[in-house]
Amino acid sequence: MTRKTLASIPAAILSFVIYLFYTGSLGLFDVITGAIVAVIIGLLVGNIVVENPGKALSIRRGFLMLIYIIWYFLVAETKAHIDVIKRALHPKMPLNPAIIKVPYNVSTDYAMTLIANSITNTPGTVVVDLDYENKYFFVHWLDAKTSDPLKAREIISSKFEEFAKKIFD
């Protein structure tokens, strides 16, 4: 099998699951139409969406992704929200905004995007620009604790990067 056909397998599986999830039913009609649609979509966009079929089908990586999602939305998000709420409600409003260069060290686009979106989605930090060649994010930070790129990475994105590396690289 060529890489293109292989790439359409994980895409088709993902399509099928999303189809059933969106339809909200497991009837025979839904399963049959879902399978037809999944195969068509998988063949059409498989090699655009999937970079490495083996990685996309890895159960270990999928499991790590699930752990990451739970940790991110329950722990990381809550921590960041509490911090921003504190700053907003504090009578002196202790803000120290700055745009900081934050390096990242992952090789795939998916891993890079996961880190960038994780940074943006937590309140207090936003990725405003990207230096793709030299692997830097430019992050707007509500309370810039440091202007040193490496220290900033330690505080902002080291944990995201750790997971992104395991899931996508």
């Binding site: 895409a11 993902l14 399509s15 999303i18 979509i41 966009v45 655009i48 969406v49 686009d109 998916y110 890079m112 995007t113 960038a116 979106n117 990725v127 620009d129 990207l130 793709y132």
Partner: peptide
């Protein structure tokens, strides 16, 4: 940017 491109790749599905 590559970030927007990667996210859009997923919405192709």
């Amino acid at each position: 940017s590559p970030i927007a491109k990667t996210v859009t790749r997923l919405s192709l599905i």
